[in-house]
């Protein structure tokens, strides 16, 4: 499999960024890398470990980054590859077993943004990896389908269909409530749907 490169301008051997600039790009990318890593691992500390690993990888590979290409897409590719090359399953289990369970138990006392965030995070974790990364990149990370395809090393059409499937799946999950809220929760599926509808209203009236 060829490495996903940034197709354009393959001709001139573009120069690497000066070290200072490279580092500035890295620093600027860190918050976004953490957000992406968080969605991949589902866990704060695992996400930070992943981000740090990726930063080191990026640093060591800095000669290969060509000035003028998309730094964030480049470094997200590293985050993603690092995620898949490490044992992601163990990360995922940490996420499920501890944090998620705790949150579910101490759970939804107020139906405000915190709970919605939480619910959305859990719903995200129910998606298959490929769909989750696609919808995060395109739906939240601000990447184009093309950029997401480059990051994920797949065809643009594949990203599109993954995003589309992820959207449907998330809608279904959020409407019935994520899997974990079943025992003794005070939010029932129908209420979940109502919450969503309430948000719909506030959104449509706001913007």
């Amino acid at each position: 499999m060829a490495s996903p490169d940034c197709d354009t301008a393959a001709e001139a051997p573009a120069e690497p960024l000066p070290v200072g600039e490279f580092k500035r790009e890295m620093a600027e990318a860190i918050p976004y890398m953490r957000a992406f890593a968080r969605s991949l691992t589902g866990d704060d500390s695992a996400a930070d470990d992943l981000t740090q690993d990726a930063l080191m990888k990026a640093w060591n590979a800095r000669q290969r980054f060509r000035a003028g290409s998309n730094f964030r897409a480049w470094i997200f590719t590293i985050v993603r590859n690092q995620f898949y090359s490490n044992c992601r399953r163990s990360w995922r289990q940490v996420a499920w077993d501890q944090e998620q369970a705790d949150r579910t138990l101490t759970g939804p006392s107020s139906m405000n943004g915190v709970m919605e965030l939480d619910e959305t995070r859990r719903a995200l974790l129910e998606l298959p990896d490929d769909q989750r990364e696609a919808i995060i990149l395109v739906g939240a990370g601000g990447f184009s389908y093309e950029e997401a395809a480059s990051i994920c090393g797949c065809a643009v059409g594949t990203v599109k269909s993954r995003v589309s499937r992820a959207r449907s799946a998330l809608a279904a999950i959020l409407e019935t409530g994520p899997r974990q809220r079943s025992a003794g929760d005070d939010v029932k599926p129908s209420q979940s749907a109502e919450l969503i509808m309430a948000e719909v209203k506030s959104l449509t009236s706001g913007a």
């Binding site: 918050p31 968080r38 959305t120 919808i135 739906g139 998330l170 948000e199």
Partner: peptide, 27 residues
């Protein structure tokens, strides 16, 4: 469509929630 907008907004919120934390000390 409306529900998808909500889901999009929620996803963005999840993502931004981390982005907003900036660059932690250890980084």
């Amino acid at each position: 469509k409306s529900r998808q907008r909500v889901i999009g907004a929620r996803l963005q919120a999840v993502y931004d929630d981390v982005v907003r934390q900036g660059v932690p000390d250890d980084f």
